[in-house]
């Protein structure tokens, strides 16, 4: 097998900047699943997530020469993906008729649940994913991004702060405000048997 698979991210990025074709392909291969997870959680819609992912990797491809090595490559890539998603959220905001009231929310989530009814749900709650995403649509983008990184992806607050380039306290307060805003939309998903320990592991998938 090719040696690129053994190289650290930073080395791959600098090889890419020097014109090594295999290096960037390896970076994409290495990070695409996780970047997809961020994009699909932020945007909810697979088409939009795919577009954002493509925008992001192309941006990274072009901007690699300016990576300064101060951050982790992974953090840098996350930031690019987050920016690409943010861009798409903003554009979506200016499109007409974003439903905001509860009735529309229900209709929306039902429709989406139907549209994806054939997708098996590992959690066994076939409508929950759509409910959660419909709920996430209801909160400000900054709060949604913070919650995706911290609560959904399971990143530490300082990692999310590095990605979002804000203070850790800002990440925390965005998460807190976002959770408070989400609460009314998620109340029906609450499970009385759920463990009550607030600090229990968040079940995310690791670090950026």
């Amino acid at each position: 097998m090719d040696a690129v698979q053994e190289l650290p991210d930073k080395e791959l990025l600098s090889r890419h900047a020097r014109g090594d074709e295999k290096a960037f392909d390896e970076l994409v291969r290495r990070h695409r699943e996780r970047m997809w997870a961020v994009a699909i959680r932020v945007l909810g819609d697979p088409e939009e997530a795919a577009d954002a992912l493509q925008d992001a990797f192309l941006s990274a491809f072009r901007a690699a020469g300016r990576f300064r090595g101060e951050a982790q490559v992974s953090t840098w890539l996350h930031r690019i993906v987050v920016n690409a998603c943010h861009d798409r959220m903003r554009r979506r905001m200016v499109r007409p008729a974003v439903p905001t009231d509860d009735a529309t929310l229900d209709v929306l989530s039902n429709e989406r649940a139907k549209a994806t009814a054939s997708v098996p749900d590992p959690a066994g709650r076939s409508d929950s994913r759509m409910d959660v995403h419909a709920a996430l649509e209801q909160i400000p983008p900054e709060q949604r991004l913070a919650l995706v990184l911290v609560d959904m992806m399971g990143y530490r607050v300082d990692e999310a702060a590095g990605i979002l380039e804000v203070a850790p306290g800002t990440v925390k307060s965005r998460c807190a405000r976002g959770r408070a805003r989400l609460l009314p939309y998620l109340a029906h998903l609450r499970n009385p048997e759920r463990p009550r320990d607030v600090t229990s592991p968040r079940g995310g998938d690791g670090r950026p």
């Binding site: 699943e33 609450r190 079940g203």
Partner: peptide, 26 residues
């Protein structure tokens, strides 16, 4: 419990078509 509800959300896997699209775009 909100954090837990969010953490439990399954992530749809990266579709092969999207991987292929990325490769092609690059």
């Amino acid at each position: 419990e909100v954090s837990g509800l969010l953490a439990e959300e399954p992530v749809p896997p990266l579709p092969d078509t999207v991987s292929a699209r990325l490769d092609e775009a690059i």
